[in-house]
Design a protein around this nucleic acid. Sequence first.
RNA 1: CGGGGUGUGGUGUAACGGCUAACAUGCUGGUUUUGGGUACCAGUGACUCCGGGUUCGAAUCCCGGCACCCCGACCA
Length: 479
Amino acid sequence: MKDKNTPITPRAEDYSQWYLDVIREADLCDYSPVKGCMILKPRGYALWEQAVSFLDAEIKKSGVQNAYFPLFIPQRLLTKEKEHVEGFAPELAIVTHGGGEALDEPLVVRPTSETIMYETFKDWVQSYRDLPLLINQWANVVRWEKKTKPFLRTTEFLWQEGHTVHATYEEAEQRTLDMLDMYRRYSEKMLALPVIVGQKTEQEKFAGALKTYTCEAMMQDGKALQFATSHNLGQNFAKAFEINFLTEKNEYEFGWQTSWGVTTRSIGGMIMAHSDDKGLVIPPNMAATKVVIIPFLKGGEDDAKVLAYAEQLASELKNNSITATIDVTDKRPGEKHYQHERFGTPIRIEVGGRELENNSFVYIARDLSEKQTAESKNLVETIKNELTNMHGRLFDIVQNRLDTNIQDVSTYEEFKQAIEDGKFVRCFFDGTAKTEELIKEETGASTRCYPLSEVEQSGICIKTGVPVTSKKVIFARAY
RNA sequence: CGGGGUGUGGUGUAACGGCUAACAUGCUGGUUUUGGGUACCAGUGACUCCGGGUUCGAAUCCCGGCACCCCGACCA
């Protein structure tokens, strides 16, 4: 943790350094001895736990069961689907020795579990009666990335990966979209983060997928962050792994598959999108501790009464499912205030002799600096409302940022300028890998997605001028 | 992996090639304070990232490694 004479870097000065400062100040993680890996400290892990509890419930509600597959994947399995192996080959961690001896066949540390799961799924799926097969796993995966940043890109990360097999394309597509929508809800309800949901271009889709859908969020510097994906795998993997089943007509057909995942990166997105120059801001629904109560203790005989009052307020909140703690450390009040601002605790309540006397309490929402006073009989209602309002305020700020920073352009000059200004750009594009690469080279912007909200229409490609009939695509610089 | 930058107590910094590596903060104990980082006293804490070299003498110069940061390429 930094000291008081070394405040965190202001956002405008160096966004990247600010982000690292916020994380360190909030005591979320440590660097590991292995480059690029992240040690999640309790405060950081608590954020992920909130995400897990929401997502796990939603996943189960949609009929999916949890299972667990091994960390090690025999290398030959990974090579079965051609595009898949080509996509992942450069970032694999491979184990060559075990028990002190060289292994006959190297083992890949899973970068994702399609291959090892589907090798098994082929045995689980025999008949149309076995479908749909709906499996999810909570796991860690390893991708040996060149460059890392806490939460946003780490060598090892935590995620949830869902894998399903269906009897028809339509059903698989529906599942793909349903899970995409779950991620949108996760983002909006938990992270207070509005997102653009849409479909990835051919070039940007998942290695081995038919279609990839994504949630794209806008950070405070205008860069995009993709933090959840849902893939319609078609029959690509089913063919490679021979996942076939007998239909009602007693004919063999390959299964139609989906996979979908969200990672600890989403926590990074939340941090980047909401935090400020004072430090971390945790949206209320993501905060394990929603309220911290700071009693003003003056060393007199009133202290016991003030403390009892604080405890009374805390237990009332807890009885109404609002997690609250009392900060009884012997630090000075000001120091506590700064600390909890850096920790991002959504609401701070202050009580002392004054409040005790007139049965009130002072509260401050993390995203506002004004102190407000309320009567203790209205405690639960007041705090509940404030938590709800805070969620709304955080959401609206990001929504507004998104709305005002998406620009429709019709010339390449406009395009370049808008990207330079840190905006999301919406335009037509010919859909080719060549054009996409060229634009990326010249401007640093990549395609984010074809938003689901867009409609197909005629236009001309922003770069090549070729006439196209398609949705407009979003371009942006991205993390 | 290419280009650039930075590595000094837990943290942030300082020190011309030259005294026992300095200051602030933190941490521990004490007194004092407590409605936005109290003040003072005492204590604690660094083979100056690692390994070589140049030199009478290296935190400082040179070479090699490693780590971190920034900009690219790769990606959730």
